[in-house]
Amino acid sequence: MTILLFYLAAFVAVIATSLVITRTNAVHALIYLIVSLLATGFVFLLLGAYFAALLEVIVYAGAVMVLFLFVLMMLGLGRDGEGRERELLQPHLWYGPAFLCGVLLGEWGILFLGWSQPFPLHAVDAKQVGISLLGPYFLAVELASMLLLAGLVGAYHLTELQRRPGA
């Protein structure tokens, strides 16, 4: 049951991600990206990391992507940008990246499929995460908060500048 669900989620994630990178309509791409994130979140759930899974839904799919959608709506990149985007996305652009990514994937395939013996997977609950987070990883938490503060200030500054005409 679990493994079937995993393959289903993986399938959805891969298909949705492929669609993300090939769509010309930004909003559609974003919706596919949300689907991909939800599928990944489901995989997290199957791996027993329900806290991470819910964070993925709440923060990633629920907040970060909304921000994207906001900006897309502000820039008018949905259906209006489709024509422009189609111009930018010429087929010949795909060859090089596809090759490079193929090579990379192949390398990883060799690497990962080499570990043939199965490993047991263990669930990790939120309590364990919390204890580690505020124990040995306290400095990381502080750094992350610093990063968020910097991001906040940076985003505020960047968008503030925009309002001044001719600045």
Binding site: I3, G48, F119
Partner: peptide
């Protein structure tokens, strides 16, 4: 707990 092979997740 989970029957998902690690290799496949990776």
């Amino acid at each position: 707990m989970s029957a998902v092979p690690l290799t496949h997740v990776l």
